[in-house]
């Protein structure tokens, strides 16, 4: 059995379908059969982070109905993956049946880069991308899931790719979900720092594994008139 489920995520479906298609392509090339379950749209992270646990719980219920233990579930977003792996147990603490389903599913859930490197043991997916690229470690990926090296390993093995050092890389880009629109002034100040560091890196592309960071950094760079583009890791790995 070499079947995996890919969770497209709500931001992925709405704003980065290219990244989802790319993730799917990368996984297919590795000989996996990739399934996307259309019954679930959102893991509930935005509602959970805003304190709206009733709404988040409804979404988690749908998510758990659509995704079962037994098939690896690949999530191309650090924050969605940590929502399921780290925060579902908190969210569902009062719902024994759902909690049990979540606990059973969690060991099968993997963030995209971690799945490739740590589960499949693949650091070279045969991609080629002759550009200067820098990597922004998304906070949830880094600090909730402790995925540190996998994305860099994958990028280092891309033909022609020059990996540029990002100054102050582990600092948050300022997205933070609804924080970005509830506290736009603070978010913008954080984003300005991040954009400056990205420019300093000398890269043509900034890569992250999270739709939120991509929206934030992409929008910030574009507004500032920068030539640097934000891309999902999968979009780089899918290029030949």
């Amino acid at each position: 059995m070499n079947e995996v489920t890919l969770f497209a995520t709500c931001l992925g479906e709405e704003f980065f379908p290219g990244a989802i298609a790319a993730a799917r392509a990368v996984l297919s090339r590795l000989g996996l059969e990739v399934i996307v379950r259309r019954e679930a749209f959102c893991c509930g992270q935005a509602a959970f982070n805003e304190g709206m646990r009733r709404e988040a719980c409804e979404l988690a219920t749908r998510f758990l109905a659509a995704h079962k233990a037994g098939t690896p579930l690949v999530v191309p977003s650090g924050s969605c993956a940590s929502m399921i792996k780290v925060f579902y147990p908190d969210l569902l603490a009062g719902e024994p049946t759902l909690l049990e389903a979540a606990r059973a599913l969690i060991p099968w859930v993997h963030e995209f880069s971690e799945f490739l490197v740590d589960v499949l043991g693949v650091a070279d997916v045969g991609a080629s991308f002759p550009h200067a690229v820098t990597y922004h470690p998304s906070c949830h990926l880094l600090r909730e899931l402790q995925v540190v090296d996998a994305p860099r390993k994958l990028l280092q093995n891309v033909r022609g790719l020059r990996l540029c050092e990002l100054p102050r890389s582990t600092e948050c880009c300022g997205f933070g979900g609804l924080f970005s629109v509830k506290f736009p002034d603070i978010s913008a100040a954080m984003l300005a720092d991040k954009c400056r560091c990205i420019e300093q890196s000398g890269a043509e592309f900034v890569v992250a594994n999270d739709g939120g960071c991509l929206m934030q950094m992409g929008g910030g760079l574009h507004r500032a008139g920068s030539r640097v583009r934000a891309r999902h890791l999968a979009e780089i790995l899918a290029r030949r």
């Binding site: 982070n49 805003e50 304190g51 906070c139 949830h140 880094l142 600090r143 909730e144 582990t170 600092e171 948050c172 300022g174 997205f175 933070g176 979900g177 924080f179 509830k182 506290f183 603070i186 978010s187 954080m190």
Partner: peptide
């Protein structure tokens, strides 16, 4: 609410 939940504090 005035936090991005980036987790640098816990670290």
């Amino acid at each position: 609410f005035a936090s991005t939940l980036c987790g640098a504090c816990r670290e």
